[in-house]
């Protein structure tokens, strides 16, 4: 795509998003990107750097603005949104992945995941996303596309049998979550309907996240939005219980330490949403702006909608190094 077209398309979409939230009295905020103690997440690798100020302090680029947006909500900010540059290390460059991307995140007080779903549909329509909206539970998606009974496969032995029955490989050391993800990515995701926005709701609570439970505690109050088979947004009815938030942080921190070793694991946040500063009841949505721009402009790869694609910068540098 012509770079001038890309500039205009991105400006138009950003303006549309700002107008949408400003009309509804959400405040636009800016939170830090460079911090000493991010929320640990076992599957996310961080970019790290050093702040040299006489002493040196290790700092990390945040993979999402969740940490500080939640601190603001706990401090009484009211409904907020942020366009947050976000950074994830260790991902291959590809049509749908880049280590630096823009995440739109917004929080609505007093809301659950289903309220956020309605608001998200309004936002998509206003930005020009067309096509019928489909909403299905993860259980329905597994039944329809994998022929697997997810509700009966919430323990590892049953999940292993179901995966083997569906012809998937099952490694001895693989956890329930590994097997769930393999079935989702191999059998379900490639077969999802592609004609309009698709919301998959009620993820298994067995996947550790900061989502609260739905009324049936086996399922989290959570959904993900797919457009054209690509994951665009993730939403939680947020967990507000300080004890369960602390347990999540500790569990993820332990997993990261087991993976990276004690010395290389970033420190966990202290007193995050503690009983003295609890998170009010709310629902948050994180939406990949670059992927949405891709969809709205008909682009086939993130590099087409990026003004300065990292893949091109790296290729140019490698060429330069080779010639030198």
């Amino acid at each position: 795509m012509d770079v001038r077209k890309t500039i205009r398309a991105r400006a138009r979409i950003n303006r549309g998003i700002r107008r949408f939230f400003e009309r509804r009295a959400y405040l636009e905020v800016e939170t830090p990107r460079l911090v000493p103690d991010p929320i640990p997440e076992r599957h996310i690798r961080l970019f790290e750097t050093e702040y040299r100020h006489g002493a040196t302090t290790k700092l990390y680029l945040l993979p999402s603005p969740e940490r500080y947006l939640k601190e603001l909500l706990a401090a009484g900010s009211g409904n907020v949104f942020e366009f947050a540059r976000s950074f994830r290390n260790g991902e291959s460059l590809g049509p749908h992945h880049a280590p630096e991307f823009t995440m739109l995140e917004w929080y609505t007080l007093g809301a659950g995941a289903s309220d956020s779903l309605e608001l998200t549909i309004e936002l998509l329509r206003e930005l020009g996303v067309s096509g019928d909206v489909t909403v299905m539970t993860m259980c329905e998606a597994f039944d329809r596309f994998a022929g697997m009974d997810l509700a009966a496969s919430l323990e590892r032995p049953a999940m292993a049998r179901a995966c083997e029955g569906a012809g998937l490989s099952v490694g001895q050391n693989e956890t329930w979550e590994d097997l769930f993800q393999r079935a989702l990515l191999t059998l379900v995701e490639p077969n999802l309907p592609r004609q309009g926005p698709l919301f998959i709701t009620h993820y298994p609570s067995a996947i550790p996240t900061l989502a609260g439970d739905s009324r049936d505690r086996r399922w989290a109050d959570r959904w993900e939005l797919y457009i054209n088979g690509v994951e665009i947004a993730n939403c939680f009815g947020e967990e507000t219980d300080p004890a369960r938030i602390a347990a999540f942080v500790e569990g993820e921190h332990d997993a990261v330490r087991a993976d990276l070793g004690e010395a290389d694991a970033p420190p966990a946040p202290k007193a995050f949403l503690s009983p003295a500063h609890p998170l009010p009841v709310c629902s948050g949505v994180a939406l990949g702006v670059d992927r949405l721009v891709m969809h709205l402009t008909g682009a086939r790869s993130l590099s087409e909608v990026s003004l300065f694609p990292l893949s091109a910068m790296i290729a140019a540098q490698q060429k330069h190094d080779k010639e030198a």
């Binding site: 997440e41 599957h43 260790g90 991902e91 992945h97 998937l168 490989s169 979550e177 590994d178 993800q181 393999r182 989702l184 990515l185 191999t186 490639p190 996947i207 996240t209 993900e224 994951e231 993730n234 994180a286 990949g288």
Partner: peptide, 25 residues
């Protein structure tokens, strides 16, 4: 790489001896 989950490589593989197709993640 799901936003909340481990990274995988999704492959379409062809058995080089009999041509049958296998999908592995």
């Amino acid at each position: 790489n799901p936003g909340k989950g481990a990274a995988f490589t999704r492959c379409k593989l062809k058995n080089a001896k009999n041509g049958s197709v296998l999908r592995e993640t």
